[in-house]
Design a protein around this nucleic acid. Sequence first.
DNA 1: TTGTACGCGTTATCAG
DNA 2: CTGATAACGCGTACAA
Lengths: 349, 349
Amino acid sequence: MAENRDVTIYDIARHLKISAATVSRGLNNNPAVSKNTRKKIAEAARKLGYQSNTFASSLRSKSTHTLGVLVPRLNSHFMSSVLAGMEKAANKHGYNLIIAQSLEEAENEKLNAETMFNKRVDGLLISLAYDTPNLNHLEPFFKRNIPVVFFDRVQPHTSSISVVINNYEAAYNITSHLVEQGCRRIMHLGGNLLRNVYKDRFDGYRQALKDRDLPFQEKLHLVSALSEKDGTEAADYMLNLPAAKRPDAVFCANDTSAVYCMMALKAAGLRIPEDVAFAGFNNDPISKVIEPNLTTVDYSGEIMGNTAVTNLINHLKGLSNLYSTNSITLRADLIIRASSLKSKAGGKK
Amino acid sequence: MAENRDVTIYDIARHLKISAATVSRGLNNNPAVSKNTRKKIAEAARKLGYQSNTFASSLRSKSTHTLGVLVPRLNSHFMSSVLAGMEKAANKHGYNLIIAQSLEEAENEKLNAETMFNKRVDGLLISLAYDTPNLNHLEPFFKRNIPVVFFDRVQPHTSSISVVINNYEAAYNITSHLVEQGCRRIMHLGGNLLRNVYKDRFDGYRQALKDRDLPFQEKLHLVSALSEKDGTEAADYMLNLPAAKRPDAVFCANDTSAVYCMMALKAAGLRIPEDVAFAGFNNDPISKVIEPNLTTVDYSGEIMGNTAVTNLINHLKGLSNLYSTNSITLRADLIIRASSLKSKAGGKK
DNA sequence: TTGTACGCGTTATCAG
DNA sequence: CTGATAACGCGTACAA
């Protein structure tokens, strides 16, 4: 009830008849203050219900113990795993997270970056929006040497680091796998080539085709936002192709579009993988539920988040030089499931 | 590069040969400042690369424009939707979100609540951990009249508000639906009864049985954390029951456990819904992918998040009295899909 | 080991 | 409409 003032270190000081400076030091466990008074201070603090005021502290010390996280969308399985990993790592080291989403729009990203800067985050973790054209909006951070860590959707920059997986290699491997299963007309459902993740997956796909002497065909490369709807529409597109031109496999740049594409094709009577084999990307929970289970690329959002934050914090603590390396590549594993196994197909009971 | 000092309002003041006070007012668009000087100030600010320092401001004004969000886990479909809704609403009103997770542990919840308090969040949004026994850890907020909004996993408290759905009614309806489909031995896979959401779903289930003169059987009520594994284990449990005692329907308190239970039963040769009908809760993406599609309860995390934040902010702005009402109940819809339709079952092509 | 004194960048108060 | 000045709560040289 009581709308009373906050308890400050001055109140503690007065209570113990010592100086505020000593209280401050005592609360921070400064060894320069005697064990005895330190204990007394802690007791008084508890008794008076003291709660440190983070701003005042930040204002003085110029460090907020807060990290900014800027992502395209909060509500995807992958991203929420990343955030979970980040939060865990941050919490462990006594840091907090201010989280905002760009909703895939460069303009929001810019505005959010600005507020994060104004809140004086100690570092920024960012995964770029679908159409962010450049890094101008991050200049304030670069100028003031506030560390920026890119993850997943990255853009190389001299004075910052990226945490990624090898999208090219994963796509190359999964496409190769499809070829090995006997697929010859492999379609690719991809995203905006401006973003590294989609560009690299596309490039890996193309190179895999090339290395097997399979032609790349424009008509078998669709670009979209990879939503449920986009998956369904891709199925329509396929069904409208003359049977001879229809792909015998689809490699989607995410699982959502793959699954919805599969469902639409199944509804149209096509058999998977016999008529069309499928591969996705992300190892989303739905990939283990769709029948047949979806072949995909697994990589841990939690680990990515954890790695990004841990590196950032080590850098902040001076334990490591963030820029001694420019990029950290995490493992990504090909998970082969029934949706792409033409060889063993037909095993219905 | 330049490790120079931040630009402050004093720099602007000096530049324009006016006082810092006027600059401060000008930047806040205080109408007491002439339009002309306001414009000059804005220009100078841009030119000098001024970025306001939120702490200093917060320290003085005692308001941070930051809301604390404390959730059990960040990485669930429902929770990330809630966060997305919250972020959108907060951003719209110029507020930021500090997000932390308790990982379902009361102790973490307590520690996180404390840091949020120390960061002087203007308000707290919280969904309780699995085993949080009481609200003692929120006392600092109550004492200082910092508004607390509970959502989803709530616990009534005189001076705060809750945003929920009617779990009781939804569970009652979905159970009734199963009964109407001819199910007589309906199992319930639920969560910790300490939490309102699971208690209410259980109560709704029980009452629906009672109203149809069906007996409630302890053996058909399992309590777990409703994970994938728990779903699978529930299936094992069912399969180990003597055939005559086996349920003919299962109502799960979430979709994840329902889907994994279904998959295990299907693998064991049971037919759904013919042998066992299924219903879940949440309308998770996997519920639309599993075959047959899962009957469930749909309610919007985004709307819940948006509602919670909007009410909180209106309260902070004095536009409404948060406590004129104690609880906001959002709509939840029964979504009937094939997994529970015994009547129309058997329609295989 | 502790105290004094000042400054961090902003806003509020008061006076003009 | 604008300026001078005092806070806000804490950390830290410097002195004792």
